[in-house]
């Protein structure tokens, strides 16, 4: 299993409130292989961004990891003290945030922010770091990088700023990049460019990416595998082709059916009735049971875990439908 870079096992993230504890992530299991792009999709509040924050160890208090473990490159990282985790952030795991307009410190130049990040992680002097900064900016496709190095963030357009953000995330040469909705705040025409940059960089460097988004188009375009999250649980995980073209979990089926397509002429888009339950109101058994069209007794009683689908070796689904098929 040496090709697995990151593995998240039974991760539970809780938010203690005054009278009760909200479970925001409920036994998340997933793996990221070296050099792959793992897409993470789901509705708002499904726990996509939270999973990313938990992996890099930046959960906002009072949120905390209550159970499970996160293993990066053979090292358990979910219980490291602050000082050690700081060495991992930026160096092993890079992060790209959603809004490039607010991700950069407005009163420091690009050079200052890049050089500080580079020198935090790599043994370079000021001059070497500056050269490295130019290389990074060129890599992410910023024209006239050397001349623009001493500009402030407000001198750049949104798309260019997101490139700078990516350059910053790459500055410590991390093995894993968590990109949290990196294109959501950008113009459609710029989105594709940014996705291209991400894809090219992880191919060139052999880095892995967790691409968090709710845009299935971006997933289909960029990801190798995809994890579908629902109410803090993984509903389905597998190669992007299978999940998009031939989804197994009833939720994924509904999700894919609700995406308009130009190629296939569909009369009506399907929609999933109801909405995702609030964290304090997740039903017993399968979290999807109130909205599922194929629900049966067992779904109200027991919670399904991820199980392999017989016909699709790389797919795992958390649904009793597939367990029954296997047993009968």
């Amino acid at each position: 299993m040496n090709d697995v870079l990151l593995s998240v096992r039974d991760l539970v993230v809780e938010f203690p409130k005054r009278d009760k504890v909200l479970t925001a992530l409920d036994h998340i299991n997933l793996e990221v292989r070296r050099g792959e792009i793992l897409g993470m999709v789901g509705e708002s509040g499904a726990g996509k961004s939270l999973t990313g924050a938990a992996i890099i160890g930046l959960l906002e208090p009072p949120g905390r990891i209550a159970h499970g473990e996160i293993v990066l490159d053979g090292q358990r990282i979910d219980n490291l003290p602050y000082g050690q985790m700081r060495r991992i952030r930026g160096r092993k795991i890079g992060m790209v945030f959603q809004d490039p307009l607010t991700s950069l410190n407005p009163i420091l130049t690009i050079a200052e922010q890049l050089i500080e990040t580079i020198r935090t992680h790599l043994p370079m002097n000021e001059k070497q770091a500056r050269e490295r900064a130019v290389e990074l900016l060129e890599e992410v496709g910023i024209p006239a990088a050397r001349r623009r190095l001493d500009d402030y963030p407000h001198h750049f357009s949104g798309g260019m700023r997101q490139r700078v953000v990516i350059a910053l995330a790459l500055a410590g040469e991390p093995d894993l990049i968590i990109a949290d909705e990196p294109t959501t705040a950008l113009d459609v025409s710029v989105q594709a460019q940014i996705i291209d940059v991400l894809k090219r960089l992880c191919r060139d460097r052999g880095a892995s990416v967790i691409l968090v988004t709710h845009d299935m188009g971006v997933i289909a375009e960029a990801a190798d595998r995809v994890a579908v999250l629902y109410a803090g649980r993984v509903a389905e995980i597998g190669p992007v082709r299978q999940v998009v073209k031939d989804p197994s979990h009833p939720y994924t089926v509904g999700l894919m059916g609700s995406i308009p397509s130009v190629v296939h002429d569909i009369d009506r888009l399907t929609q999933i009735p109801g909405s995702m339950p609030r964290l304090d109101n997740i039903p017993q058994g399968c979290a999807f049971n109130p909205r599922c069209s194929q629900v049966h007794d067992r779904c109200y009683r027991d919670r399904p875990n991820l199980i392999a689908v017989e016909s699709k070796p790389d797919n795992q689904v958390a649904c009793w439908l597939f367990d029954e098929r296997a047993s009968s």
């Binding site: 930046l58 700081r86 991992i88 890079g94 992060m95 420091l108």
Partner: peptide, 23 residues
């Protein structure tokens, strides 16, 4: 966000507080 991003880049606590935030 830029302070969160600075943390996510593993910058030193002191730099985040006194260089990035205080300014």
């Amino acid at each position: 966000d830029y302070i969160k991003f600075a943390r996510a880049r593993g910058l030193a606590q002191r730099s985040i507080h006194f260089h990035h935030a205080l300014k």
